[in-house]
Computed example of a mutant assay.
Amino acid sequence: MEGMISFGNKRSYEEFRKQIPTQVLPLFDSIREFCFGLGENVVEDVRMHRVVFCKSMTFRWFTDIEPQKEGVIIKIQKNRKEPVGIIQINKDQQISEFGDLIKEAYEQIH
């Protein structure tokens, strides 16, 4: 699968999906698809409680998404000199409401 890199015994996204609350899953999946759609150099790093999206193998992360009971917490990093932005998204919101912030972070991270 494109964008997947394995470092040893890392969890797959399919394994991670099992811990996401059912009502939040459509939002989480749409954020994931949006991130992959930003470019061919997007790398997904599935961690214990969240999924981090990086730009290429330099692992400059631009988006960190963590499922919650009623939504998703998104951390956005545009560069290492600015503080990380944190957005709490409700399960009923759409990617179109915050996609520009993720895209801008992807374009600006080095």
Rank of each mutant, 00 (worst) to 15 (best):
N9Q: 07
E14K: 11
E97D: 15
E14W: 09
G3P: 06
Q77L: 10
W61T: 02
N79K: 02
I102M: 07
I89C: 09
E70H: 07
T63E: 06
N90T: 10
R32E: 02
F7Q: 14
N79D: 15
M4I: 12
M1D: 12
I89N: 01
L101Q: 12
C54N: 10
G8A: 07
N9I: 04
K91F: 09
S56F: 02
H49A: 14
Q19D: 10
N9C: 02
T22W: 05
K103R: 15
V46A: 08
G99V: 00
M57V: 03
F7M: 11
T63S: 15
V43G: 05
E14F: 08
R32Q: 09
I65Y: 05
I102Q: 03
H110C: 05
F36V: 06
F62D: 03
I86D: 01
S56G: 09
R47C: 08
V84E: 12
E14C: 06
E104K: 13
F53A: 00
I109C: 05
E70M: 08
F16H: 03
I5F: 09
S12F: 07
L27D: 02
S30M: 04
K55A: 01
K18E: 13
K10E: 15
I65C: 04
I5A: 10
Q77T: 12
K78E: 15
V52D: 08
R60N: 15
I5V: 14
I109Q: 04
K91S: 13
L27E: 01
F62T: 00
E107S: 15
M48P: 01
S56Q: 03
W61V: 06
V52N: 02
M48D: 11
T22F: 11
E82I: 02
L101R: 13
T63F: 07
